[in-house]
Design a protein around this nucleic acid. Structure first.
Lengths: 253, 253
DNA sequence: TCAACCAAGTTATGCTTCGTAACGAACACT
DNA sequence: AGTGTTCGTTACGAAGCATAACTTGGTTGA
């Protein structure tokens, strides 16, 4: 739960007046309660009246802080992306740069367990759009998504920097994809080391495989397997991903 | 939209009276309208009153056919599983048994395009449970899911029958997973050819990878790629999956 | 044929939610 | 003190889910 106020986000020259602080605190409390309710009820559908009740307030008061349900959802989506990004980055940086496969494992595990422990937030950001919610086009959510997803990708950049990245199992990259990758690489600052197109493609394969397992597990579609078996399947999935993506063989796990 | 009535499903000895026929037709119409509304509104959240309005009825009349919203959803989930299973099976059987990789491609493409063209139904069955909806434990939905998922798996059985299945890239299978696979294989009729454990594991890897790509695309998270690039990424994903799962190299695609 | 029955649909109603409007109390700043 | 902003309240209207009670028309049986 970041303490950033939703509206009036202009830099106040480090002078948050008392009112602003309490307001920010209230906003955080609202989001926190909403999160708890989602968690308790197992849905992404939060009722304003319930939040208000939990806070000992009346429903209309919430409209002082969020114009409507969508605005609250947008804020929570941004928070969720930020949280996921932070969790992933922390897990990644717990493993030395010299061990890219260990880092992949840590990142994937963080992604997976975050989704599993908070399927609602996961659904909020990477599942189907919530009923009645239309994401503001090119809004802050897109930004937050980009930031979070970069935390995943960066692992491959690091590995490339380390020079331990071997070519992926699948070398062929279709013309249209190569174009996209080139365009993206060109948009980067020129100094940054661009990934080879086949590795970029492998990067997306890895994400898809990780995401697939994660979705299936988070939404209970792997419940026919006991937890240890799911862990084992996850480990083998990541090992397979590392192998096909050209990362060195598992060192730690 | 199958014409199976929801309640009173006892075999009527091929004697559906007129009342029963019109009732079944009404049930189908309700489900059809609900589906159209989901499609139009882009949500899995259907309002009874909207359905009624579309049908030129009043809302309470719908309760003659479905006890509540959950019962309608359950029916639609079963239908969706059946539809997905049928689409997948049809695509699979359009390709000769002798071409397992071609079959994998067809199956995967069917899964993908079904999800992409009807993200709501896809979310209904393989996404997060709908707000406020609790699936009846061990109910008809579980049955339908099993049936549909078997259509995916069967491809590997056929390939094994053909004797063209090579060992997958990842041979190691953890104890706990091996136990599960053995248990599942033991539950089958004894004559049926069981898959080797490593292939079974590869089967799940394949599903996860396919599902991951499908989810990402269906919910718009791959929109940063133009359609051709998405097609190319999909093709490469499936090629990678086929390779790592031990299917023969692509023959057609 | 007529009466009883039943299924399907209607209006009427209660409860809950979203969201707005109008009002009151507390605080901040001059 | 006085004034204006902020935060919260109660009051309200529209809409949805779900139930109850009534109406209608086809079905069935004496």
């Amino acid at each position: 739960m970041t303490a950033a106020p939703i509206e009036n986000a202009q830099p106040e020259r480090a002078l948050p007046t008392r009112r602003e602080r309490t307001r920010a605190a209230t906003i955080d409390e609202i989001k926190g309660i909403a999160l708890r309710l989602m968690h308790e009820q197992g849905t992404t559908d939060v009722r304003f009246s319930d939040i208000a009740r939990e806070m000992g307030m009346t429903a209309p008061a919430l409209y002082r802080y969020f114009a409507d349900r969508d605005e609250l959802l947008t804020a929570m989506i941004v928070d969720a992306f930020d949280d996921l990004g932070a969790v992933v980055a922390a897990a990644r940086d717990d493993v030395p740069v010299g061990d890219p496969t260990g880092r992949l494992f840590a990142v994937a595990q963080a992604y997976r367990s975050w989704a599993h422990s908070e399927p609602q937030r996961f659904a909020l950001i990477l599942g189907m759009p919530v009923p009645g919610y239309a994401a503001p086009e090119e809004g802050p959510t897109t930004e937050a998504a980009r930031r979070a997803m970069f935390q995943l990708k960066s692992l491959f950049f690091d590995a490339a920097d380390q020079g331990v990245l071997r070519p992926p199992l699948l070398r062929y990259v279709h013309e249209s994809l190569r174009t996209c990758f080139d365009a993206e690489a060109a948009a980067k600052p020129p100094g940054e080391p661009a990934l080879p197109a086949d590795t970029f493609q492998a990067c997306l394969h890895s994400w898809a495989a990780l995401h697939g397992f994660t979705c299936l597990e988070a939404y209970g579609h792997l419940d026919f397997l006991p937890p240890e078996a799911r862990d084992a399947l996850f480990a083998s999935t990541i090992r397979l991903v590392a192998t096909t993506a050209g990362l060195p063989l598992p060192s730690s796990a």
